[in-house]
Design a protein around this nucleic acid. Structure first.
Ligand SMILES: NC(=O)c1ccc[n+]([C@@H]2O[C@H](COP(=O)([O-])OP(=O)(O)OC[C@H]3O[C@@H](n4cnc5c(N)ncnc54)[C@H](O)[C@@H]3O)[C@@H](O)[C@H]2O)c1
Ligand SMILES: NC(=O)c1ccc[n+]([C@@H]2O[C@H](COP(=O)([O-])OP(=O)(O)OC[C@H]3O[C@@H](n4cnc5c(N)ncnc54)[C@H](O)[C@@H]3O)[C@@H](O)[C@H]2O)c1
Lengths: 259, 259
DNA sequence: CCATCTTTGTGCACGCGTTCACAAAGACAT
DNA sequence: ATGTCTTTGTGAACGCGTGCACAAAGATGG
């Protein structure tokens, strides 16, 4: 059964292959490294030479024991009684995350969101470089966005290959996301950041992470509702038992091109 | 360790009150409910009356046992031998997530990203309504964005109170995020969606979720690098002259030849 | 060199989340 | 009613992540 394409399982995880688990750094740790790196970079810019796990943990918003354990996976780069060398840690984490090299990225779907991402400075700051902006709308072709010309998706395969792009960002409407994803993967992309509210199916070996604004808001709404309910300290949480309720119209913009 | 302000601890979690009163739905389940809801809505629009856990799980990209267990927390709404009633589930999940009511939202910082979010249709679709767009730049005041006038942050407190806004979205530069957050919270906002790469400190009872593009990319880069490393080396691993000792711990070396 | 003080690195226990596997429940046919 | 077939709901095992608590390591001072 589950032999062809793997659907994204984990919370937001990539194709966490069980096999290549050499000195495997736990996923949870990997997800926090960028957080540490950001805090360390700020310290570095203030020329702070060393930092204790307690201080750094506070800056990153995590538990200090967790931070120390995280760092222990990278090897032991601290000095007892002193703390961690800021510059050295910045280097080690950058290296571990692969930020010491250049990562060409393509953004597909230059609408509202694609525009914003293209203009986002935080991209280039770390090793990420926007190799191309792609859109299926021919009317956009050639138009400059953040100094880069929008190119037609016809050129996708050529660009991915020639620029050695391994990371693709999808900001198309949901109905086009799977198709765009398939083309990116076929062209050689092996990591995808998906902003469309779509479950992407990809072959093994391809990592997908998704950013879903709508889900985040709904989770907040849940907690918000719970807080409100706790305040009132209700007693009636009974189910109305009205199956046919109209409920939220939702208006999903699905164009669902079927499988 | 004072009990003053709580820094965001969990992966991306809100103030997860441990006292799971009444029916405590696990955080992991809550995070998946929107996923199910989306798949169910699509089915609903195609007038599909019932769906099995297997089908729905496939559509949502999760394990079917997990889905069944998730639903079991909501109560048992399935029929054995048949599956789940789509309309009924849509209603139950919407209700559980609090989407049957209206959630006014303010967006603070109407730059590139704020613009995109304001124009995002997916907002209004589910119970979320943009109550106001706020920016500190007076030059933007009055300007129409997505049909709404941008208003100055001076009006924040008044708007939050009069519109009963409980959810705030922060899309300001990182340097302003904490300050904006403080003002939102003081005005009465108890849930914050933060797009700025900043660790926000909030009082207990306030939920913060963050969306961090940069972190997502760095996580992808990590896996990308690992993939590249795995491809390159057949025999020896990549570890380049790490001075510290070998971190031998477990013995389960599952190295697949499979090359 | 010894004493003291700071901070790391980690063993350990605990709780959450995931997944398997299966009995029970119900639909449906005869 | 009875049997068969499908699918749910969940008990139980397991693995991962977290955080406490502490011994070891090293700095610093006398
Ligand atoms: N705007 C937001 O704030 C926001 C927030 C969360 C999620 N999203 C999601 O992000 C995606 C983009 O949102 P948006 O507001 O930018 O939409 P948009 O309509 O403004 O832009 C979509 C762009 O994709 C292009 N496109 C369509 N089909 C394509 C294809 N097959 N190949 C390449 N390009 C194609 C369109 O020409 C358009 O330029 C949507 O899936 C949306 O649900 C957007
Ligand atoms: N653009 C992206 O794609 C992107 C991606 C990831 C993260 N981010 C983050 O999102 C945030 C916004 O990004 P952007 O590209 O839209 O930036 P931007 O500079 O285009 O917009 C920022 C807006 O915030 C306003 N602002 C500044 N200080 C304010 C204050 N104190 N109160 C209210 N408004 C204030 C500014 O006037 C401006 O309009 C940044 O923190 C950025 O790091 C952006």
């Amino acid at each position: 059964m589950a032999t062809g394409r793997s659907t994204q399982n984990n919370p937001n995880a990539a194709a966490s292959n069980r096999r290549s688990r050499g000195r495997g750094i736990p996923d949870a740790t990997v997800a926090r490294l960028p957080l540490y790196l950001r805090a360390l970079t700020a310290l570095s810019e203030r020329s702070v030479p060393t930092v204790s796990s307690e201080e750094l943990a506070a800056a990153a918003g995590v538990n200090s024991a967790k931070l120390r354990k995280d760092f222990s996976y990278l090897g032991s780069y601290g000095t007892r009684g002193v703390g961690y060398d800021v510059e050295y840690l910045v280097y080690q984490i950058s290296r571990e995350l692969g930020l010491t090299q250049d990562w060409p990225v393509v953004i597909v779907g230059i609408g509202n969101l694609g525009h914003a991402l293209a203009n986002y400075g935080g991209f280039a700051s770390r090793g990420f470089r926007v190799a191309a902006l792609l859109d299926a709308d021919a009317a956009l072709s050639g138009q400059l966005v953040a100094g880069l010309p929008v190119r037609h998706t016809d050129e996708m395969e050529e660009i991915v290959r020639s620029e050695r792009v391994s990371i693709g960002v999808i900001t198309t409407p949901p109905g086009a996301a799977q198709q765009v994803c398939d083309r990116l993967v076929a062209a050689g992309v092996t990591s995808i950041l998906n902003f469309a509210p779509t479950v992407l199916n990809v072959p093994d070996g391809v990592d997908v992470r998704k950013v879903d604004l709508s889900i985040e808001l709904q989770i907040l709404a849940f907690h918000e509702q719970r807080k409100a309910g706790d305040d009132l300290d209700d007693a009636d949480q009974e189910v109305p038992a009205t199956p046919s309720a109209a409920v939220v119209s939702e208006g999903t913009e699905l164009e669902e091109a079927a499988g």
